[in-house]
Design a binder for these strands. Structure first.
Length: 296
DNA sequence: ATCCTGAAGC
DNA sequence: GCTTCGGGAT
């Protein structure tokens, strides 16, 4: 995180045109676009998944980036793509191996969902869908990721809205409003969306929104959908993470050994292990536990 | 403490 | 609508 932001970041922070409803004037659209592009030209963030056109690799990056910083994803993305260069390597790998590749990234269900999605895509010849409606049917792909894959991999002209873009529009067009719904923001995203070059435009929007995070208070707190996150330390998912980490270091672990590793007095152990089993990420057979799905 | 290119289950 | 789901950097 640079202490000194690029000059154009101030241009982004100073762009405020309170939105009064209706359609944006062509002048407003033009001014907004000028600020966004000028920032992007000066300070675009290069990322490996922005250099490829491979829909599979873009999809992998979108799974990894859900609730996870770019800086944390970057090294893991390289490792993952080196191990699973195409959707077929990923689809044919055992779930346990994929979970090990994911270890430390967090939200491990993303890995299971990505694996299952890869299997379904491989069954259909390895073609990643290019339509939001179809993408939405795949596990782990929600409203954002579906739109992101369509826009970034296929340059489809669809509305993409995530935390950086939301922050940018809240800051620029809803400076004083409270409890702003995404339904109010989406029309503005649509109206400022260019006819061509959709992918680069969204990269620019996200970089502008990310730049704002370091300068002004988080405008996303004025979103209707804003909610604080429950604390991690002391939570069940903390123990889930510990269990997955231990299991990823061994092929099979006796139940007692696993419990001792976590802390025999920790009453979160049972619910955590049962949750992981229910989610299909660990298998308890007899008195031993292993990562992945039950082998056929 | 806060938040990160969210999704699923209820 | 509300909760759960990781982990690390700040």
């Amino acid at each position: 995180m640079p202490n000194r932001l690029p000059e154009h970041a101030h241009l982004v922070a100073e762009y405020v045109e309170p939105y009064r409803g209706g359609r944006l004037t062509s002048g407003q659209v033009e001014r907004f676009r000028r600020v966004v592009w000028s920032y992007y030209r000066a300070a675009r963030r290069p990322m490996p998944w922005r250099e490829t056109r491979d829909p599979y690799r873009i999809m992998v990056s979108e799974f990894m980036l859900q609730q996870t910083q770019v800086s944390r994803v970057e090294p893991r993305y390289h490792e993952f793509i080196a191990r699973y260069p195409t959707v077929f390597e990923l689809a044919t790998a055992p779930l346990g191996e994929v979970l090990r590749s994911w270890q430390g990234l967090g939200y491990n269900r993303r890995a299971k969902h990505l694996h299952e999605t890869a299997r379904r895509i491989a069954e259909r010849g390895g073609i990643v869908p290019d339509e939001v409606r179809e993408l939405r049917t795949l596990p782990g792909i929600g409203p954002y990721t579906a739109a992101a894959v369509a826009a970034f991999a296929f340059d489809r002209r669809v509305v993409v809205l995530e935390t950086n873009i939301r922050r940018l529009f809240l800051h620029g067009f809803f400076p004083d409003a409270q409890g702003v719904s995404d339904r109010e923001i989406e029309p503005l995203v649509e109206q400022t969306l260019p006819e061509r070059g959709v992918r680069q435009w969204y990269y620019a929007l996200m970089d502008c929104g990310a730049a704002l995070a370091g300068m002004v208070g988080n405008a996303n707190r004025r979103s209707r959908h804003y909610s604080r996150q429950s604390s991690f330390s002391g939570s069940v998912r903390e123990v889930r993470g510990m269990i997955v980490r231990v299991l990823s270091e061994h092929a099979e672990v006796p139940l007692e050994t696993l419990e001792r590793a976590i802390g025999p007095t920790d009453e979160r152990f049972r619910p955590a292990l049962e949750g992981l089993e229910r989610d299909g990420m660990v298998v308890v057979s007899g008195r031993s536990v292993s990562l992945g799905e039950s082998s056929p």
